[in-house]
Write a protein that binds this DNA or RNA. Sequence first.
DNA 1: ACATGTTCCTTAC
DNA 2: GTAAGGAACATGT
Length: 110
Amino acid sequence: MKRIVADITSFQRKVYDVTSRIPRGFVSTYGAVAEEIGCRSCRAVGQALKRNPFAPVVPCHRVIASNLSIGGFQGKTGGVSIIRKIRLLEKEDVMFRNGRLADPARLFRF
DNA sequence: ACATGTTCCTTAC
DNA sequence: GTAAGGAACATGT
């Protein structure tokens, strides 16, 4: 039986929980996740997602920056990984344009 | 658009 | 324990 276990902090736990709550076809922002968790540190959220011990389990690609920019992915603000992120989102009806969210209505609010 | 300050967590030494 | 970094945000220039 496969059980998901990892040495993570409560903070990370919350981050992954909130992130996984984002429905398919929607995206959220670091700020929103941070707010939902209860802290004002969006960077801390980025830290947790960057490490992402639950990589395939947690859709970290559904989390973007609050200014609707794609933000970063796997520790970078650009590169092939970002393209992959956009590609995945486009597959979920979330269109991006020039590294930015084309339709702000896709923003999911908790 | 760019630089700076803020804010909080993780990792490394 | 201290220092540095990290996928952001807000504000001022």
